[in-house]
Amino acid sequence: MGDDGLDTLGLPAADPARQARVEARVRERQADQVLAYLRRLPYSYAGFVLVAVIGWRHGLRLSLPCWLAALAVVTFLRCRQGRRIERLGPPARAAALPVLLRGFLAGGLLNGAILPFVFMAPGDDFAPLAVSAILILVLSVGADGVAGSTRAFASLFRCRPRC
């Protein structure tokens, strides 16, 4: 902030106390959104089961059960952690946001971990497996990305005349 009361963009400088309240409220809302997503997280597991069924039929016998088991454990732990954090007050939930986001990172890394195995599947015709696995994973991750909101997920498939 300069001597003229303007910030680096030339806008009036915000009151530091107000700025701190706004930032705290934003973190609280972010934590609430993550917790809303975690309540619906088990539903996205159905897409992963479908990927496993398709992969099993194409010869991925060892990697899929391991992947599904790891996903089940991570999903369970994330849901349990989310329920525990939901019981806290808003400031404590906001303080737990980095922990919740590390769960997103772990889930995302594990979601994509199956793709190398899809491309190493035995046989000559891996295209149906690859396309279906990628499609289902993208849809599952898309469902995750809209925080489990059915309306937001369904809107991904709607094309209005103005598109």
Rank of each mutant, 00 (worst) to 15 (best):
D4N: 14
T8M: 13
T8G: 11
L11C: 11
P12D: 00
P12Y: 13
A14N: 09
A20M: 06
V22C: 05
A24M: 14
R25F: 11
V26A: 12
R29Y: 10
Q33F: 15
L35C: 06
L35N: 02
A36F: 03
Y37I: 06
L38V: 04
R39G: 08
R40D: 08
Y43T: 06
A46H: 07
G47C: 03
G47I: 10
A52F: 07
V53Q: 01
V53H: 07
I54G: 04
I54W: 04
G55P: 04
H58F: 13
L60R: 02
L64P: 05
C66N: 07
A69M: 07
L77M: 15
R78K: 12
G82M: 02
R84L: 13
E86G: 10
R87G: 12
L88E: 06
G89Y: 05
R93N: 01
A96F: 00
A96V: 10
L97M: 05
L100K: 01
L101C: 04
R102Y: 07
G103M: 10
A106Q: 03
A106V: 15
G107D: 04
G107T: 08
V118D: 00
V118I: 12
P122W: 01
P122D: 08
G123A: 11
F126R: 00
P128D: 00
S132N: 09
I134L: 11
L135K: 05
A147W: 04
A147Q: 10
G148N: 02
T150C: 15
A152R: 15
L156I: 09
L156Q: 08
C159S: 11
R160E: 12
R162K: 14
R162V: 15
C163W: 13
C163K: 10
